[in-house]
């Protein structure tokens, strides 16, 4: 590592998103966007997550088109295994009738899993390629080309997922209980007395809001931490060995588990929203 490029810089470089924004001089990138405020876009997060989402839909749609009721091919059997697994979990937990919960769960599970699996791509490969492309074709400083390839380490993405789920929680709460029923649930629990309405409201609102926040922060925290450890490991040893290997093996467990937890909690929250007390 060059002297002007320290380990801290290396880590920071890996943990910075590629940003795009519009300024007075037109479209600007990265450091030029420091003052862009809210209207800045993490193009790497967007590109990778949408790319992986399209990959997921492409794989599953092509399987769905070729789906036969006869003897399935191996690919179809695998896709059906995933679908059946999600369906089983939805049925075990969610007892109402809903056309959206099962496909929502499938989307969350597979999409989050695919994004999490980006964590297993060695941390230097994609930023290096991006830096080479940036410096070769656009004449940029490679240290100013950012590429954070794991979309779930971006709070924007995890919060987007959680807010989507939160909207559905609100929608189902109001659809199942009506506006008045939902308000009653917020104000008359756990202490069913008019005098406790403000206390109840504060308690229940915190409970309600804690759900999407915990969903988003859990996924973000786990993935950000594991990515950070990968980056730290990358600064040690000989070509990241031997520490990289056990940590990656460990993540074969952690990454699907996080995707599964996100899906399960979504189902649980929605089934809670649909239940009358």
């Amino acid at each position: 590592m060059a002297s002007e490029y320290s380990t801290t810089d290396y880590i920071n470089h890996h943990l910075t998103n590629a940003v795009m924004c519009t300024t007075e001089n037109g479209i600007a990138f990265n450091k030029a966007c420091k003052d862009a405020g809210f209207w800045a876009w993490h193009v790497d997060t967007l590109a990778w997550s949408i790319g992986l989402g399209v990959l997921f839909l492409w794989i599953f749609t092509s399987a769905a088109k070729k789906a036969t009721t006869g003897v399935p091919t191996k690919g179809q059997a695998f896709i059906e295994l995933v679908v059946d697994f999600v369906n089983q979990n939805v049925r075990d937990t969610f007892h109402g009738k809903s056309a959206i919960i099962a496909p929502l769960s499938l989307t969350i599970f597979v999409w989050v899993l695919l994004m999490n699996l980006m964590d297993l791509v060695p941390v230097d490969i994609l930023p290096t390629i991006a830096g080479l492309i940036g410096s070769t074709f656009f004449g940029m400083d490679p240290h100013d080309v950012y590429m954070k390839a794991v979309p779930t380490t971006d709070l924007n993405l995890t919060f987007a997922l959680a807010i989507g789920v939160f909207f559905l929680i609100l929608y189902y709460s109001i659809k199942m209980k009506g506006v008045s029923g939902f308000m009653k649930e917020l104000t008359l629990q756990p202490f069913n007395h008019p005098a406790f309405i403000p206390v109840n409201f504060i308690l229940e609102s915190v409970t309600l809001l804690a759900r999407p926040v915990s969903l988003a922060l859990r996924l973000f925290g786990n993935l950000y931490a594991s990515e950070l450890i990968f980056i730290l490991i990358a600064t040690l040893g000989f070509f990241q060995l031997p520490l990289h290997f056990p940590w990656a093996v460990f993540h074969i467990l952690v990454l699907p588990l996080q995707a599964f937890i996100f899906m399960m909690l979504t189902i649980v929250y929605l089934s809670l929203a649909c239940e009358d007390h």
């Binding site: 998103n17 876009w41 924007n156």
Partner: peptide, 8 residues
Amino acid sequence: INATLIGQ
């Protein structure tokens, strides 16, 4: 948190 949230 920025506009990426909306896109996502």
